[in-house]
Design a protein around this nucleic acid. Structure first.
Length: 851
RNA sequence: GCGGAUGUGGUGAAAUGGUAGACACUGCAAACUUAAAAUUUGCUGGCCCAGUGCCGUGCGGGUUCGAGUCCCGCCAUCCGCACCA
């Protein structure tokens, strides 16, 4: 008998798969195709245990689909542009490209040890000039199609480093390196017209049957289609050129509850007024110092500035309302101006209380008579669901008692009939700003010419490659100060011109990589035949943190690629099924220093909750892994110690895939022990006696397991499948069956485990005389006759509490069950001679006797 | 702040509205062993008057013969918020 040695068998089978070309995707007219894709990683340099979980899940699906006779495409690449490479360049004086490709090489070697069923022949990195050159070609197509345009937009500006900051580089309103107060600065930037597809992107969510509802809900809310009223307040003695304020509201039914008009600090009127009003200029400047992140704006204290200007209410010209500049109003959404109705909006209510503005109720709860309606809303705003009827006390259209939805419709109709604005549909979704003032990204392939304007680069000149001779010792974008790269003749007139020095948002790179994988070497962004065959992605797997931006941008990009002839119509929704997996977490061990600041300790420093010096540590369970918290698990260490199969088995067991799983050393140890046990049991099976007992029981257990594991894999219930495999292993171990039955059961076990622990399974399969590679063996099919049990145990409840149980034939009729139940001692005792009030029999499930 | 999710033993969790805790981890006990490791076996939600007992799925209500599951209201944690990827 030999023992389980992962280090010996894992490289052996990895080589066998490579030699056989098992995972090279091939178009095969005789097979259905299956495209499984996990979100590709950012090449940080090291594989994270979270990657192991993510890619193992995809691997289970891919290997299962190979076994069920599919032509499988399971590619891998690198989301390789982005900020960290530039940070590394600044900190370590290494070129971003050099750093990135070194990381890729390192991660790839780590990947290879996991035994994933990846087709590495299709690998690419988004920073490969070939890839981003094709992206530039598509950008030019989009430009010609009218899907790209330029407009002004604000960025975070660090006035000390003289550079644009990402939101994550702004900490408490200050630049992360310089510590300088961040300013907002307006730049002309490139945008994708995703708003052209707002309706389509929203409506098509209904067709995505195999997407999680939560993701669809998040996208729907993000797109935020709303029907509202756009109208104008006329200004009383407004400054020159400003006689009205255009506002948009989704609650026109509360128009008679208006108490002020709020405008954005960036509203043209606010900009006009600040010229003659130092105080307002200061207020606006303060608002503009805030970072551009919406979260910061929303969390910031709500502040306003009374401009002193007044507007007339559209229903009553004698009724004047004050105009405030308010820091929470976005210029990007609606018209940059709102009317405030404090009675029915918490934010407006806070604002009204703070600035002493009146609060008028427009409706009160139906049925209640709360005395003075205005009194009712003084303390807190009344925010009612829009589909619940309420009583309007300042209504002006529709019934007195109606839902807000009905009242809104009536109010829009009333306003349109009376010439007060018109109903409009607006979206929260803004156009996608893709310009980045950075080096390590895909150059935007246009040239700015003084006479010709913006001219796209000629396609034969693509890719516009990033220059290699750059330095990061000064802040800002090196492309801006690289004359031989920047200064080029205009492609149109030949006069001296300048290249665009902005590069593209890295979300662009990841918005079409799935399409490029179908033909990674093609001279055009996609090859129509290949794309037609392989698209769509049948199963996409990734973190829920990408639920909105990446997935929405990809959906837009697929549509834009279709519009420019790069994808077939069917691929406008590129991901047929989506699964969002949870994280791998780990406990954090911390103590406190003299100033009570936390000090973190590595897991290997902690034994039984104590450090080597005996000090007890505080344990924070289930925390996201982070280097600074010292709770990161290195997959390479785990593989060195236990092997890849153990790591794979562990990350699939215990927790449902969509939830977080906590990494524990004891759990990894247990997974390893279990695999060794499987090895031993399978090894022993071949040595079992020729004749045994209960062969049929073992077969029935095997078929039940085939059924359950298959269902588990099909439904992403990997933890449930693992639990069933644990149970079956025990059955096999204890079975007194003969050799033939045991070997058959062991081969089935190897097959069922193969998607999860492929190396161990290959070895067992080979030793027990399985034909060829287990990865290619047809998936076992459960015999339905083996799944039927003749008898069922029926729990008996008395008043809903379980008191007894009976074992009956599976198909026993209701009447016969009732009779048996009433004869039971426990039931008779509870009834005490009386007849039951009710007897509920759910055949095959439960009996409830109500007394 | 807004949007989305999650919450069940010491731990990870299971449970088409139908026996709450499957399957594991930890812990305890036993077998084997000179010993240890490995392995195997058993027990392992809480409480008490130890039963055909009571309580128990974040908290408070509700619907139902029956609620972890459905509804309403809270609390806590996590994810996203458009320049992190």
């Amino acid at each position: 008998m030999s023992s389980y040695d992962a280090a010996e068998i894992e490289p052996k089978w990895q080589d066998a798969w490579t030699d056989a070309g098992t995972f090279e995707a091939r178009r095969d007219p005789d097979k259905p195709k299956y495209y499984v894709l996990e979100m590709f990683p950012y090449p940080s340099g090291n594989l994270h245990i979270g990657h192991v979980r993510n890619y193992t899940m995809g691997d289970v699906v891919a290997r299962y689909k190979i076994s069920t006779g599919h032509a499988v495409l399971h590619p891998m690449g690198w989301d390789a542009f982005g900020l960290p490479a530039e940070n590394a360049a600044q900190e370590r004086r290494v070129h971003p490209g050099e750093w990135t490709y070194a990381n890729i090489a390192n991660m790839k070697s780590q990947f290879s040890r996991l035994g994933l069923s990846l087709d590495w022949s299709r690998e690419f990195a988004t920073c490969d000039p070939d890839y981003y050159g094709k992206q530039q070609a598509m950008f030019i197509d989009f430009l010609e199609q009218g899907l790209v345009y330029r407009k002004n937009a604000v960025v975070n500006w660090d006035p000390v480093d003289m550079t644009v900051l990402a939101n994550e580089q702004v900490e408490d309103g200050r630049g992360w390196r310089s510590g300088a107060l961040v300013e907002r600065r307006e730049l002309t930037q490139w945008f994708f017209k995703i708003s052209d597809y707002s309706d389509a992107l929203l409506d098509a969510l209904d067709t995505l049957e195999n997407w999680p509802d939560k993701v669809k809900t998040m996208q729907a809310n993000w797109i935020g289609r709303s029907r509202g009223l756009q109208f104008a307040f006329s200004l009383v003695d407004g400054p020159q050129g400003h006689d009205r304020i255009e506002v948009y509201t989704t609650r026109p039914d509360t128009l008679r509850g208006a108490s002020f008009v709020g405008i954005s600090p960036d509203h043209p009127l606010a900009r006009q007024l600040e010229k003659d009003n130092e105080e307002l200029a200061a207020f606006n400047a303060e608002c503009r110092r805030m970072g551009t992140a919406e979260e910061d704006m929303e969390k910031a204290e709500k502040k306003g500035f009374d401009t002193g200007l007044r507007v007339r209410h559209p229903f009553d010209t004698a009724w004047e309302l004050p105009v405030h500049v308010a820091n929470f109003i976005l210029m990007d959404y609606g018209t940059g101006a709102v009317f405030g109705c404090p009675a029915h909006d918490e934010r407006d209510h806070d604002f009204a209380v703070k600035y002493g503005l009146p609060i008028y109720a427009t409706f009160v709860p139906e049925g209640e008579l709360p005395g003075d309606p205005d009194e009712y809303v003084q303390q807190t705003a009344l925010v009612a669901p829009k589909d619940t009827p309420v009583r309007y006390v300042r209504g002006f259209a529709g019934e007195e008692v109606q839902t807000a939805n009905a009242a809104i419709d009536a109010a829009i109709a009333f306003c349109e009939a009376n010439g007060v604005g018109h109903g409009v549909t607006k979206f929260r979704l803004r156009d996608w700003g893709l310009s980045r003032q950075r080096y390590w990204g895909c150059p935007i392939p246009v040239i700015h010419c003084e006479t010709c304007g913006v001219v796209p680069e000629k396609k034969e000149n693509l890719p516009v490659e990033l220059p290699k001779d750059v330095s990061f010792d000064q802040p800002g974008n090196p492309l801006d100060r690289h004359p031989t790269w920047r200064d080029v003749p205009c492609p149109s007139c030949g006069a001296p011109a300048k290249r665009e020095t902005d590069t593209m948002d890295t979300f662009v790179d990841s918005s079409w990589y799935y399409a490029r994988f179908t033909s990674p070497g093609a001279e055009t962004p996609t090859d129509p035949e290949e794309a037609a065959y392989w698209m769509n992605v049948d199963q996409y797997i990734g973190g829920v943190e990408h639920a909105i931006l990446h997935l929405l941008y990809s959906r837009f990009f697929a549509r834009a690629m279709h519009a420019t002839g790069h994808l077939p119509a069917r691929a406008t929704e590129p991901f047929d099924a989506l699964f969002t997996q949870g994280m791998v977490t780990h406990e954090i061990y911390q103590t406190r220093d003299e100033t009570n600041r936390p000090v973190y300790h590595f897991p290997h420093e902690v034994t039984d909750g104590k450090l080597a010096d005996g000090r007890a540590v505080e344990v924070i369970p289930s925390a996201k892994m982070s280097k600074s918290k010292r709770n990161v698990v290195d997959p390479v260490e785990i593989i060195d110690r236990y092997g890849a199969d153990t790591a794979r088995w562990f990350v699939l067991s215990d927790s449902p895939p969509e939830r977080d799983v906590e990494w524990t050393a004891s759990g990894a140890e247990a997974a390893s022990k279990h695999l060794a046990r499987v090895w031993r049991i399978c090894d022993e099976a071949s040595g079992a006696a020729e004749q045994g007992r209960d062969d049929d029981a073992l077969r029935r257990a095997a078929h039940r397991t085939i059924h359950d594991v298959t269902m588990g894999i099909e439904s992403f219930g990997f933890n449930a499948a693992v639990a069933r495999l644990y149970a079956f292993t025990s059955v096999l171990q204890k079975s007194p069956a003969g050799r033939a039955a045991k070997c058959e059961a062991a081969r089935i076990l190897a097959q069922l485990m193969a998607p999860m622990t492929p190396h161990l399974s290959e070895e067992i399969w080979a030793r027990l005389g399985g034909e060829g590679l287990v990865v290619n063996a047809p998936w076992p099919v459960a015999d339905p006759a083996m799944l039927i049990d003749d008898e069922v145990v029926l729990p008996i409840q008395i008043n809903g509490k379980r008191r007894d149980e009976i074992t009956v034939a599976k198909d026993l009729g209701k009447d016969a069950i009732e009779k048996l139940v009433l004869e039971r001692h426990a039931v008779q005792k509870a009834l005490d001679g009386a007849a039951p009030r009710k007897l509920i029999v759910v055949p095959g499930r439960i009996v409830n006797v109500v007394i």
